[in-house]
Design a protein around this nucleic acid. Structure first.
Lengths: 233, 233
DNA sequence: GTCAACGGGATTGTCGACAAAATTGGGAAC
DNA sequence: GTTCCCAATTTTGTCGACAATCCCGTTGAC
């Protein structure tokens, strides 16, 4: 056993059976995806030492990553008791999605339409990236491309705080969304909705855009509420 | 020198000229107030060792407090460069207040009216606490009581995420609000508005409530925008 | 049989010390 | 006089080790 990874600077290969070194951001992304894709279940405990061993990192690094995951509200930390994957009750899911709908439709109303022609190509490129990931059946890439696409859209609403808040709430909803991300059919539906959003942005049909934003994440909410009656308390 | 404070457990007195020990949450509150009341200016740098010496804490504890202040968005941390009190450009102030207005008026619309008679006494008590602090001219107590009052009101909107988001944005706006908190006249104006809000909640006059929520923080925005033209970039 | 006190082991939290990075000030070259 | 570069200093970041806390199974009393 030698030199475990430091924070962000990836060092050379070490050894040890189960210690493939990784950078802090890579570990963060991996854990994020473990949660989003349901490999880590709500309420499941994360043990610092285990995570450190898995990624060949020090416990200190893992600890910092945990505080970041906590900031993202993907996990919850209880003093002296450790970190748990966050779980939402059906009532909370309902409230979270109500708020998201309110904010995203409001943001859609604020975007100047039609979008300037300079703004369209980047959005188009992101949509293509998403579509390609769907075609390849690469759920991880779909997940990342989806985030990037939505961020880019709401960046045009003219209010950085609104855009940030939307993104944060989207992050919190990731725990809920994993059911959606798994099925090829729903990924394709999302892809088609993205294309329709782009059309609406291009043509300046605001009502269509607003309706699309509202409809976009409904399936995820319903899937979660249908699947997890056990989370009622 | 001896035993500097650990995290939350306050230990006995140590010694050293400038090292009065304090708990982590006390240090956090003190720094928060330093920022809110303008004793620390936007862009001003916070040096870990200095803060540690001032409060008789270890640098480790200060470091954790900084990450908490960063989470509250009161400071900004740049890797290997340290922590700065956050500064907002006039455009950002405008956007922040726009969003707060949108969320707070929406929350006001969601509160079931008139409020149940069981819910009123706690709100009344908080309002009294605020009024007492204003009468005593204790800006620190006014600040805390104001936060508690608003949190208690928006807790009734039926959406924990909306309430949380409102509170977080309020926290971010604290850096901006300090001008308001200093003048006795504006504290008294706030106190009267709180009383009016309570009346509206009691009587179920929703339009009045919504208007009050919207009007409540306008002066702070305007004060900031008037006073800090230098923050234009 | 139930319950409370008590340890042993597992896990998280904190410390002092060291390493890495950035800033500053001074001097050499032009 | 100005610019560039380097070294010394300041400041932040990370490590290994230790301490505190919690969990859980065991024991013993009633």
């Amino acid at each position: 056993m030698a030199a475990p990874v430091r924070a962000e600077t990836s060092t050379a290969e070490t050894s040890a059976a189960e210690a493939p070194p990784a950078t802090a951001s890579a570990i963060l992304a991996a854990l994020e995806e473990d949660i989003v894709f349901g490999r880590l279940h709500p309420r499941e405990r994360l043990i610092e030492e285990e995570v450190a061993a898995r990624f060949g990192a020090t416990r200190h690094a893992v600890r910092q990553i945990f505080t970041e995951l906590e900031r993202m509200r993907l996990i919850e930390r209880i003093p002296h008791r450790g970190a748990l994957v966050k779980a939402y009750s059906p009532a909370e899911v309902q409230q979270l999605y109500d708020l998201r709908e309110m904010l995203e439709t409001q943001a859609a109303r604020l975007i100047p339409l039609p979008l300037s022609s300079a703004a369209l190509p980047p959005l188009h490129a992101l949509q293509q990236r998403h579509a390609a990931a769907v075609a390849a059946g690469d759920a991880r890439a779909v997940f990342r491309a989806d985030l990037a696409f939505h961020r880019a859209i709401y960046a045009h609403c003219g209010n950085v705080f609104l855009a940030e808040t939307i993104e944060e709430l989207g992050q919190r909803a990731q725990v809920i969304r994993y059911a959606t991300l798994r099925s090829q059919a729903s990924m394709e539906r999302a892809r088609d909705q993205h294309a329709a959003m782009l059309d609406a942005l291009r043509q300046g049909t605001r009502d269509v855009l607003v309706a699309l934003c509202a409809a976009h994440f409904r399936p995820a909410r319903e899937a979660y509420l249908g699947q997890h009656p056990d989370l009622l308390r």
